[in-house]
Structure formats: C-alpha cells, structure tokens
Design a protein around this nucleic acid. Sequence first.
DNA 1: TTGTACGCGTTATCAC
DNA 2: GTGATAACGCGTACAA
Lengths: 344, 344
Amino acid sequence: MKKKKVTFEDIAKYTNFSKTTISRYFNNPDSLTLENQEIIARALKELNYQENKVGRILASGKTEFVGIIIPDLYFHYYSEMLNQLLATYETYGYKFLVFAGSSHPDVERRYIRELLAYNIEGMIVLSHTISSEELASYGIPIVTIEREDRCTCSVNTDNYMGAVQACSLLYRNKCDVLIHINGDIAPEIPSRARINGFLDFCREHQIAHEWVLKDLSIDYEETSKILLEVVDYLNQKYPERKKGIFMPNDTHANVLLNVLVRKYGTLPPDYRIIGFDNSPISREAIIPTSTVGQQIETIAASAMELLVSRMNEQKKRKPSPLSEPIHRVISPVLIPRETCDFAG
Amino acid sequence: MKKKKVTFEDIAKYTNFSKTTISRYFNNPDSLTLENQEIIARALKELNYQENKVGRILASGKTEFVGIIIPDLYFHYYSEMLNQLLATYETYGYKFLVFAGSSHPDVERRYIRELLAYNIEGMIVLSHTISSEELASYGIPIVTIEREDRCTCSVNTDNYMGAVQACSLLYRNKCDVLIHINGDIAPEIPSRARINGFLDFCREHQIAHEWVLKDLSIDYEETSKILLEVVDYLNQKYPERKKGIFMPNDTHANVLLNVLVRKYGTLPPDYRIIGFDNSPISREAIIPTSTVGQQIETIAASAMELLVSRMNEQKKRKPSPLSEPIHRVISPVLIPRETCDFAG
DNA sequence: TTGTACGCGTTATCAC
DNA sequence: GTGATAACGCGTACAA
C-alpha cells in the first residue's frame, strides 16, 4: 500500500498530455476538446486522483482560507455565530481556520501570526482582545462582529434600536419604572448602545428609570446571589410599582426570572422581564422570556459577504490601499413572550 | 506599499547567508553559531519577515492541519467539545479546519474531499452521517467521538456506567418506579448504552421500570407537548408512586422539569429527575437539575492525544498499516442536585 | 558550520 | 487547443 500520491505528472504520463493540460482541465475545461476532457476524466478515476491544493496555493497565492478568532463557545450567541459562519462555505467555498480566543493579547497575536503564516486571505474577529487598530495593521481584509471596530469593517446588531424596542415593549406593558441591570461598558463597544438606548428612551418618554450598575459574570450562583440582592433593593425602592426589567442578555434574564420564581412561586405581576439575543434559554426558561432577537444568520452572512468583497478587491487590483472601513448594522427583532403581558 | 512578501531568499541576500542557513535557523537553530543566529534574528526584525508555512508544507508534506466535522453547534455538548478540541492547539500546535456537518452524506463527503485536498494529517469526526467503515477507508488517522466507531479509533463517554449511576441515584432516592424517556437508538451508537444501562440496572435490582419510547426533537414546544402527555400517562399508570425519571439529556430534562413546575407550581415530591451531560441548562434550570456529567475536556484531550499518536506513527514508520482501532472510554461523573432529594 | 542543487504539486507565461 | 519552462517558498540530501 504505497501512499505515493497521484499528481498531475502521473496523469499527464498516463494520458500522454502535459501537466499544463491537466491543470487546464481543472481551471479552464472549456479550452480542451470534449473528447480530451473525457480522456482525462477517465484517467482521474482510474488513477484515483486526489486533488492537492497545497501546490495550487504556492503557485497561485490563493489559499481560500479565512481565519476566525472567537472568544469563547460558552455563550450560545458565539457558537451559533460560528455555526452560521461555517455554513457560508456552501456559498463562497472559503475554508475556516478557527481559534477560540484566550483573552490574552499575546496569545491571540500568536494565533494571528499562525494564521498569517498560512496565508489566510481574510479574518473574522469576534474576540475583543486586540484593538481594531492593530488588527487593521496586519494588512489583510478583516471583518469584526460586535466589538470595537474603529479601524476595521464590521457587522453589528443595531443595539440601540434593540434597547429602544425592549423599553418600548415594557412601556406598552404599563411598567411604572424601567430598570436595566448591566455593567459599565466602554463607549466603543457596540453593546454599549443597549445602555444608551435604554437611557434615551426613558428620558424621551419621561419614564422613571434606573441603570443598576452591576457586573454580572458567567457564574450562575454568583449572578443569582447578586440578582437576589437587586430584587430586594428594587422591592424596597419601588414598592407597589410595576417594574420593567431590561436585561442585557437572555442568560442573565433567565437567572433573574429564576430568582423571582423561586422567591414568589411565579413571576409577580409587578415584574416584567425582557432579555437580549433570542438564545435557546429564552424559550426554554420556566416562563418563556421576551427578548430582542439577534439575527445571527444575517449577521454571519453579511460579514462573509463583506469580507469576500474585500478579499476580491485585494486580488484583482494592484494597489488598492484597503479603502475606508464599512460598518453594517443589522436590525434586531422584538420577540414578545410570556414575561411581558402582551405585545401590543 | 508593495505587498511583496519577504522570503528566505531576501533574508539570505540581506545577511549574506544561503537560504539553507536561514531555513536551519528555524528548524535547527543549534547548528548555527550563536553569533550568526543573532545576525539572522536581527535581519528578520529589520525586514519584518512573516513566516510562510505553505512552502514548508509543500516541501515537508506536513500541514499540521486537523479536520473537524461536527454535526451542529446547537447543543452545548458539541460547542463545548469543539471549544476543548480547539484548546489543544496550545498542546500540540495542530490547526483546525472546521466543518459543521450537514447530515447529508454527499455534502459531508465533499467536506472530507476538501479536507484531504489540503493534506490534513488527521480528522476528528463527531458527525454521524458517514459510516466508520467509509471513514477508515480514507487512509488517514481518524478519531471519532460519541458515534458509531467500529472501524475507527474513538473516545466515548461510558454511557452504560452513566445510566447506572443515574438509576442508582434515583434508587437511593427511594423511587418506586424508574422511567426512561428516549427514542430507540441503534445498538452501534454509544449513547444506546444509556438505555441498556437503565434496563440492566432496573432488572438487576428488580425495580419496576418503563422505557417510554418517544422521539424527542430539538423543538421546545413539540417536546413540551409530548412530555406533558407522558406526565399524564405516568400519573395515571403510577399514581401514588414515586417516579424517578432518567432523561437522555439535560435539554429534555429541563423541558420535563418545566412541564411539571408549570403544572404543579413546583417539582412534586413524587417526581425525581436526572438528566445527562451537565450542560449549563442543568444548572440554570428553575430547579438545579441532577445530571450525569460528561467530562468534555477529558474527552477532547484524549481524542487529540490519540489522534496525535496515530499521526506520528504515520510520519515515522514507513508502512505502518494503521493498526487496530483503539477505543477509549471516559467515565462520567454523577452530579446530584435539587431534583433529587440527596446524594446518598 | 555552511552552501549547492533539487524536489514538493500546481499555476502562469509564453510559445507553437 | 496544447506544451515546455519557469516560478511559488521552503526542506533536505549531499558536498564542502
């Protein structure tokens, strides 16, 4: 069982053509006689030829590789995004080299160097670790998703609009006071707009509101404890008032919901809740939870479309100094469920 | 801004060494004078050399690529497995080309051909679509995880033991009748052993039991409806008896839990529940749910270790006809939580 | 310790 | 429509 791989050379000998012709058979078949195409096709079968793209890369410079750097696969948001990015293989044929980020800048720089060593044609970055300025400096097309994007192309959810939709739903649910529980987020991070949208909406509509400044972690028990305290605080501060709580994501909305249900046996009528993301947990919670749905498939498709157009520019034109960053914004979709009274 | 990449050639000219010496600097630095190493190191900085592994691949035949075919990233089990597989980059340096499988055999065959075209050195398969026999026929090292594995190396959870542990916990919780709600699973699928473990344990301990044969889908509402019917059925058939329910995974355990809590306001004392996987949902459920924890990190590490050893064999020895498949089994860990009375 | 020459599998540029 | 030849960037005998 010799593992000697069959090459164009072998096909050429076998068919009495030249390597060039074999190459053409793959890249420009129409330039061959139909007859000869069939001869070669047959030879490929008979010799059981296995395509080898490494040679092609070296000769053509095109790897059809795209690098992905994603911070984590814990949150469903990220794994679904990766899922949808990978799915674009069917559309564009780009293969994905994936690194799950480590939030250590130097480690991620090693990832990037490694990706560059394989001549990736472009990169999609979801990790927050490296500044967009540095990313841009690597000189290859890059699209970032939902992170700081001053110097890179990006696709983000319209977080501001999402927050406004969420608040609007709580408002229509006759909530007396709107609450947002979230850490302080740097202004350059897109999801910061959720806070801004919340604040602006409440001010514009002159609704009593409060941004409860709490950093909520990934740890369930810890978050649970914090949110229980927040509930006590809210009960004390806003007794007899209907509280509309806008949580920054569905995972934490679920923790809050559980805290309330475990405390009161059900979601008390003076609490309305809405989360963000439309993660599975929002449907699988003890009470199906209203949420602002991110259109992950659209975001992923849009990111790849943008990246592909950039990569094509790089190939065709000569100098093309990687024009101004393009920022795309995808509208979220309001999904009212049982943690609000009704959609209207 | 000419994009002309710096090559060994350039470094060689710049330093008055030959390409060979530059190459050696990377692959066998000790064979150079310390002095000369520094000269080259400096030149690399000054010319801003970017490693290019494509040439190396062509010359050496070693891509350091591993292909991953994963069925889906919806279930946390898979995304976490991918996470842990990617994390082994730090240990072995293999890069991962990832395809999210499509459950269409022909599509996955295209994926595999594409992977082979890039000379991947090995493959990790979680998808169930292609038979292990066909996988083995591709002639590269392959490790499968939690799927039919007759002809391939594999790493699986000890599903049988997991089921026994689950049943044992329910038994110690003084359940009168043990219930397992699951579809019929082909004997060659590892998770089939969960059913066998359930049945064997109950028979050996002479416990009343029933395998409720239901195919539960990924759809929450649909599953919810089915499980509500099952609950009615169980109430009727086993009134006044303490029912210990062993669910095949945490997602469905959560649906059942929600059905019960929504029906009774809490988990009735005559229902005990345990799931499988230790997914986040088991901790985030309205009542923290007992589960059989899969050691995903260990499984992933073990799979890569196995794969790496196989890939090394392929490189070193000449004929090495890819010896007999090795099957590794990782023990699960029982995690008792509030849906059971106590651990003892 | 260092250099020469060739090979890896494919594509691109010319010729014919 | 087809073929010879030279890249592409690096590794590796073999020679010095």
